[in-house]
């Protein structure tokens, strides 16, 4: 019974928003085509029931994450991917008509061939560089999105993701330092410390690690930082550790370890 016209009419009827009189005309057509009114009523009942299915409200955290991502994009002047590609693509210069573009392109091909013939395949190299840059931008975007997640395991996976050399840049470094200093979850802070430690040949990372000492409240993090500072032989860490042991509320075992660390560093 379900020929194409019947299918179309039933779908239109269910969707509603029909001009006056059309509903009656469709029902009459369907009746003429042998559609049982009971069956039509069943479709309509199901169609209504579909709308009744409840959807929970998204959490407040979703909007907070969006706001943070938008502020970050505004602050960093996040360029559109296509804008970035256009900037890298000499064929897309604004103001050039098709003929000059072809001439420009052709001259590039000739030059490319010549240089490639003489030296190395440069056009291929620049294309790869452009692709790498796009990949890097995308990886950074994914990393930042995951870092804003309300789920600690998502943030952990973002920190692991940052270990990928291709994803590493200033934005990633700053986000990891933020995670080390203020993430609500101690495991995320520890993993961020681990990842940053692998980048400790960067003086900005070392500086951030030293500054992070005074921000840590968890004994676990303080002890981990003490180990890192010893491994890096970072003498600047002695001062913040001294300030820490001046606190009478500090755990005895932590105090002992910090005193030992200061002794070894100085």
């Amino acid at each position: 019974m379900s020929d194409k016209k019947t299918e179309r009419l039933v779908s239109e009827l269910l969707k509603g928003r029909l001009p006056s009189g059309k509903e009656a005309r469709i029902k009459a057509s369907l009746k003429k085509k042998g559609m049982n009114p009971g069956r039509l009523a069943e479709y309509e009942k199901l169609w209504d029931a579909l709308a009744e299915e409840r959807v929970p409200e998204p959490s407040e955290a979703m909007s907070v994450r969006f706001r943070q991502a938008l502020d970050e994009a505004k602050k960093t002047g996040w360029r559109s991917e296509t804008e970035g590609a256009a900037a890298r693509n000499p064929f897309r210069r604004p103001g050039l008509g098709p003929a000059p573009r072809w001439a420009f392109g052709f001259s590039l091909v000739v030059i490319g061939w010549f240089v490639g013939y003489q030296l190395t395949p440069r056009p291929e190299r620049s294309r790869l560089e452009a692709l790498n840059a796009e990949m890097r931008d995308m990886k950074t975007a994914i990393f930042l999105t995951k870092m804003e997640s309300a789920s600690a395991s998502e943030r952990m996976s973002a920190v692991h993701y940052a270990e990928d050399a291709a994803a590493w840049d200033d934005t990633v470094r700053e986000a990891l330092v933020r995670a080390l200093n203020s993430d609500a979850n101690a495991n995320v802070r520890l993993t961020a410390l681990e990842t940053l430690t692998r980048r400790s040949n960067d003086p900005r990372v070392r500086e951030a690690l030293v500054q992070s000492i005074e921000r840590q409240e968890s004994p676990l993090l303080v002890l981990a930082l003490a180990d890192v500072m010893l491994a890096l032989d970072e003498k600047r860490a002695a001062e913040p550790f001294r300030k820490m042991i001046a606190d009478p509320a500090l755990y005895f075992s932590v105090r002992q370890r910090l005193e030992e660390t200061i002794r070894k560093l100085t």
């Binding site: 998204p58 979703m62 938008l70 559109s80 991917e81 998502e154």
Partner: peptide, 16 residues
């Protein structure tokens, strides 16, 4: 929720 975030990131990235 994660996917909503991804969509708005993509809108920003591909706005052009």
């Amino acid at each position: 929720e994660d996917l909503v975030q991804v969509v708005f990131c993509k809108i920003l990235a591909y706005r052009d």
